[in-house]
Amino acid sequence: DYFTVDMEKGAKGFGFSIRGGREYKMDLYVLRLAEDGPAIRNGRMRVGDQIIEINGESTRDMTHARAIELIKSGGRRVRLLLKR
């Protein structure tokens, strides 16, 4: 199942961390959800969800650093296409 999650940044960021990336020879996944962060309050994202797109850009062969950069580059908002 594919689904989109739109979030607005909180005081401590978006409230999730990721693992994976090209340099680890793996796809990008949601690693952790911060307690009471925007990701957990949104209610749609879960640990283990695969991140397919960040702000419309495919994560295929994307490095971990580039993924972080893209998440931050959207300013106060981020849109993720996830797969569960």
Rank of each mutant, 00 (worst) to 15 (best):
M62L: 09
M45F: 03
L28M: 10
K83H: 15
D27T: 07
T63C: 08
K9V: 07
R32N: 10
A67H: 00
G37T: 09
L70G: 06
I71V: 12
E69F: 13
K12E: 09
T63R: 07
G20S: 03
E57F: 15
E23T: 04
G20D: 02
T63G: 06
K12D: 08
G13H: 04
Y2T: 06
G37E: 11
L33N: 03
N55P: 00
R76V: 12
K9D: 12
Y2P: 07
G10K: 15
R41P: 06
L28A: 01
R19S: 15
R76Q: 15
A11G: 10
N55S: 03
R22W: 04
V47C: 08
L82T: 04
T59I: 02
E35T: 09
D61M: 07
R46L: 13
V5A: 12
H64G: 08
R60D: 12
G37Q: 09
L33Y: 03
V5S: 03
T63Y: 15
M7L: 13
L33W: 02
A65H: 09
A67T: 03
R77W: 11
V47Y: 05
L82M: 10
M62S: 06
L31A: 15
K9F: 03
L81A: 11
S73T: 12
T59S: 06
F3G: 02
G13Y: 02
V5R: 01
Q50H: 09
I54F: 00
S17H: 12
E57T: 13
S17D: 14
I40C: 09
I18G: 01
G21I: 02
R77E: 09
R19H: 14
Y24L: 13
G56V: 00
R32Q: 09
E35S: 09
K9L: 15
D49E: 02
F16H: 02
M45S: 02
I52F: 10
D61K: 08
R46E: 13
F16G: 00
S58I: 09
S17P: 01
T59F: 01
G21H: 02
R84T: 14
G56L: 04
E23I: 00
M7Y: 04
Y29S: 12
G75T: 12
T4C: 05
M45L: 13
K12Y: 12
I71R: 01
V30K: 00
A39S: 09
K9S: 08
L31E: 13
Q50T: 11
S73Q: 11
A34M: 13
L31F: 10
I71W: 01
L28C: 03
F16E: 00
T63M: 07
Y24M: 14
N42E: 11
M45E: 02
V47D: 15
E35F: 08
R46H: 15
M45G: 02
G37M: 11
Q50F: 09
R32K: 14
R19G: 14
R66L: 06
M26A: 14
I51L: 10
D6W: 03
M45N: 01
E23W: 02
L70Q: 15
Q50L: 12
K25S: 10
D36A: 06
K25C: 11
K83V: 09
T63V: 04
A67Y: 02
Y24N: 14
L31M: 14
V47P: 09
I54N: 00
F14H: 05
G74A: 14
S58D: 08
F14Q: 02
E8W: 09
A65I: 08
E53V: 07
N55R: 03
N42G: 11
D6C: 15
H64P: 03
K72R: 12
I18Q: 01
K12C: 09
E53A: 10
R19N: 15
M62H: 03
F16L: 06
D27V: 04
K72F: 06
E8P: 05
S58P: 10
A67P: 00
V30W: 00
M62Q: 05
K9A: 15
R60I: 10
R66T: 08
R46Q: 12
H64A: 11
L82I: 07
S17K: 11
G56E: 10
R76P: 13
G10T: 04
R41A: 12
Q50N: 10
I54C: 02
G15I: 00
R32M: 14
P38W: 05
T59Y: 02
G56D: 07
V5D: 03
R22V: 15
R84S: 14
M62W: 03
A65S: 10
F3Q: 05
V30T: 03
D1H: 04
V5W: 04
D27C: 06
R76E: 13
R32W: 09
L82F: 04
A67F: 05
L31N: 12
G13L: 02
R60W: 07
D49C: 02
E35N: 12
L81M: 14
G37I: 09
D27M: 08
E35A: 13
G10D: 13
I18F: 09
R76H: 13
G48D: 14
R44A: 12
G74P: 07
F16A: 01
R19Y: 09
D27A: 11
F3C: 10
E53Y: 06
K25L: 09
G43E: 13
I51K: 00
R76C: 09
I52T: 13
K25T: 07
